[in-house]
Amino acid sequence: MNKNLGFLGFGTLFGFVLSRTGASDYDLIMGMFIGYDYTLVGVIGTAIITGAVGMQVLKKFKHPIKSGEPLKINAKQLGRWSLLGAGIFGLGWGISGACPGTVLAQLGEGKIYGFFTFIGMIFGTYLYARLKEKHPSL
C-alpha cells in the first residue's frame, strides 16, 4: 500500500487509541505527575513491554521488514544539551498536560486549549530552528 496512506491509517489507529485510553485527558496526565492516578503509567509501561517483545519476535522473522531490507535500528544519540532539552520538554508536558502525539488527538476531540498547545509546539520547533542557526551544537 502507498506509504503515505499507510501512515494515515496507522496514525488514525494511534490517535483513536490515545483518545480511548485516556492519554489525551489532561486530568490523567496531571494524575501521573502529581500521583493521584497512574493509568497512563500503565499505558506507557504496557506499550514499552509490548514493543520490546514485538521487536524480539520481529527479529526472529526471516524477513523482519516486508520489503526484504535488513533491519537496522538507530539509537538516538545524546548531544551535549539533549538532557536539558528533555527537561524542557518535561516542563511543557506538565504545563500543557499533553505531548506531541496526544495534543493531536486533543485537536481531533475538539479541545480548544489543545489547539493552542499545538500552535505552541509548531512555534517551539521554529524557535529551535532559529536557535540552531547560531548554536549548531544544540
Binding site: 548531544g79 544539551w81 539533549s82 538532557l83 536539558l84 532539552g85 528533555a86 527537561g87 524542557i88 520538554f89 518535561g90 516542563l91 511543557g92 508536558w93 504545563i95 500543557s96 498536560g97 499533553a98 505531548c99 506531541p100 495534543v103 493552542f116 498547545t117 499545538f118 500552535i119 505552541g120 509546539m121 509548531i122 512555534f123 517551539g124 520547533t125 521554529y126 524557535l127 529551535y128 530552528a129 536557535l131 544544540l138
Partner: peptide, 12 residues
C-alpha cells in the same frame, strides 16, 4: 506549554 514541548523535543 506547547512552546516548551516543541523546543525541548528537538533539543532532546
Amino acid at each position: 506549554g506547547g512552546l516548551l514541548l516543541g523546543l525541548g523535543a528537538r533539543i532532546a
